[in-house]
Design a protein around this nucleic acid. Structure first.
Lengths: 183, 183
DNA sequence: CGCATAGTTGACTACGCTCAACCCTGGTGG
DNA sequence: CCACCAGGGTTGAGCGTAGTCAACTATGCG
């Protein structure tokens, strides 16, 4: 397990490089980029602080994308074989890793579902309902609203507007980042 | 590990039921539905043949959604504790399960990425590039453009317009449903 | 007491949706 | 062989909503 500091624009690894490690962002933000035959970039998403990436590299011979730092970032890397044998030998670790993957998969699917909804109003309502813990009515959004807006797929401004609109309609009650649903 | 056959409309389990198992669809299709406090459904996506679902139930006390069969379906269920202890005791199984989760997470993220692209133009380009077989430049869309538009998440009209626009810009060449990329 | 960052609000723009008419192709029957 | 029809596909016009840019406020931190 080693640390690497990347400057903005610095490349961590290239698509088709042999896959040797799995990574996590300790601080900063990196972008995953996909190249086609023609050399055009077709796909990128950003990985934020605290997230793993290149998990799929554990099971592939080569990386399927190129990773570049968007802003100065500190990256933790775990050599692939070390990580795999650790997983095989330590049931607690592998269970914990499975749990992380399962939760992230679940969350990602929810986001995908969200993207099918056109209206910002409905999308935000849907998001709030989904994020509210079972049997509770209040959810506290403990991340910058910017980021949440990004997850939902709308601009921060519209997110802000929509929240105040919903509050005016008495559909939600809001105190800072604690939001209560009044169904 | 047991099998269950569901008729169309039959319910496998309800939201808030104690989580006792993890499932896979052997044949058919089931729908995952989310209920709010007020009883309104807020979320659903479909699980196709060959896919696991309720993985997150492994780590939760209760199910977070209700599962209903859309069409007659055969479901395989693995009791939660059995599956968890099997994972802990069998490194090969846990590694295989991790691999599945990692791949599905990756694929889901790709779909999410596509939906995240605002501009119809860029979204269509991205889609075409992703759909084009490796080492080829031509893709043939052998389904009604309507359906494809639905997959991409834009209206058929806009899809049509966008294709002709791209053709005018010489970015693509189009003969009926065969499309060639001119990067 | 500033400074940086997050969040809010306003004005304007632009893009995609909707509805509608039209075109084109393939199939069917007279 | 043509007339008709149905469906997918294309194009046009107008509208609405979310994005953008900008100014401003609030909050947290040194």
């Amino acid at each position: 397990m080693t640390y690497q500091d990347l400057a903005a624009g610095e490349i961590l690894f290239h698509q088709n490089d042999p896959a040797t490690a799995i990574f996590a962002v300790e601080s900063g933000r990196v972008s995953l980029i996909h190249y086609t035959e023609a050399g055009k970039t077709v796909n990128h998403y950003s990985v934020m602080t605290g997230e793993y990436f290149a998990e799929v590299a554990l099971f592939n011979e080569i990386y399927v994308c190129t990773v570049i730092a968007e802003i100065p970032s500190r990256i933790v890397s775990f050599p692939k074989q070390v990580f795999l044998t650790a997983l095989a030998q330590d049931p607690d670790l592998s269970t914990a890793f499975i749990e992380q993957l399962a939760r992230r998969l679940h969350y990602t699917k929810l986001l995908l579902e969200l993207r099918g909804i056109r209206s910002a109003r409905e999308r935000v309502l849907h998001y709030l309902r989904v994020m509210t813990p079972p049997n509770k009515k209040t959810v506290s959004l403990n991340r910058p609203l910017k980021q949440i807006a990004g997850d939902i797929g709308i601009s921060p401004e519209v997110f802000s507007r929509t929240l105040t609109q919903l509050q005016n309609e008495r559909l939600i009650t809001r105190v800072r980042r604690r939001i209560t649903l009044n169904d």
